[in-house]
Each structure stands twice: as C-alpha cells, then as structure tokens.
C-alpha cells in the first residue's frame, strides 16, 4: 500500500506492507533507530512513540492504520540541535544510564506533559508505568519529568 503520514512534522510517503509494524517501519524502512526494540509485545515501552497525541507501543501498531496520523518519535524532540526542556532535564537529573529505555521514556513523558503540564509525582509514575527501566530505579527519571514540567511552566 501507499502510506502517507506525518512524521515529526514532516510528511512521509512510501510503499509498505500494511501488516508491517510501525517499529519495523521506523527502524528498517526509514533507518530511524532512535525508537528501540526490546520485547515486541507491548510490555516494555522501549518503542513508545506518540501517535495523534497518545503514547503507543510502535511494536503493536500496524502500518495499515497509519494513514494521515501524526507520529512523533524521539528524533522529533530536539529542534535545530537544541535539546528540549524534557531532554535537558533527563541530563541534568542523571535520568539516563544505559539509555536504551530513554527514548521510550521521553515519549511517554512528553505525552503526559502534552495533556497534563503540571502532573503530580503519582501521575508521573503512572504515565511512565508502561516503560521498563532496569538501570535507574526510576527515581531520577520521575524527578526529571517533574523538573521539566516545572521549567515548562516558568
């Protein structure tokens, strides 16, 4: 099928098999490897991207459902080489260790802040609860998201 959708604010048009996952589409077809593959069954969140404002697991999203959607990936967070407030907060709060869960974490956090610019700690934990991290114990990540929210409001 011919697929047209918006990826990180830019229109994309390509020929794909409709039963290909969005994750394969990003990684294999578009060579955008920022979105990570880990469990393949929607249980780890490493492949989280935002589609039409909602966080989704790219490994469970079929290309056939993508036409006309707005997709954001980790590559869309920084603008002109400048880190977004959220990315900078992850650096400042030491929220990154191995970094493999980081793109997915960032996208879940971004989806939260789009809807809820002033989340409580409990809301942050809930928003990140579909993203497994083996390195950090989540503390630094939760702090970073909270700090980014505060920065966004100031």
């Amino acid at each position: 099928m011919k697929l047209e959708f918006i990826l990180n604010d830019k229109p994309v048009s390509l020929e794909v098999e409709p039963d290909m996952t969005l994750l394969d589409l990003l990684r294999e077809r578009l060579q955008m490897t920022g979105t990570k593959r880990s469990c393949g069954v929607g249980e780890c969140g490493a492949c989280t991207v935002i589609v039409d404002g909602e966080p989704v697991n790219a490994c469970l999203y079929l290309a056939g459902q993508l036409p006309g959607r707005w997709v954001y990936t980790v590559e869309g967070l920084s603008k002109d080489g400048k880190l977004s407030a959220l990315q900078q907060a992850f650096l400042d709060h030491h929220a990154v260790q191995c970094g493999f869960c980081t793109p997915g974490m960032l996208m879940s956090a971004k989806a939260l802040l789009l809807k809820n610019p002033h989340p409580t700690e409990a809301e942050i934990r809930r928003a990140l609860s579909g993203n497994l991290c083996r390195c950090t114990g989540y503390e630094a990540i939760v702090e970073a998201v909270g700090a980014a929210a505060e920065r966004g409001s100031s």
Partner: peptide, 9 residues
Amino acid sequence: VGSPQIRSR
C-alpha cells in the same frame, strides 16, 4: 488495564 500505551489502543 495494562499501561498507558496499551490503554491508548
């Protein structure tokens, strides 16, 4: 249900 990502879908 599941997680935020699952609840989106």
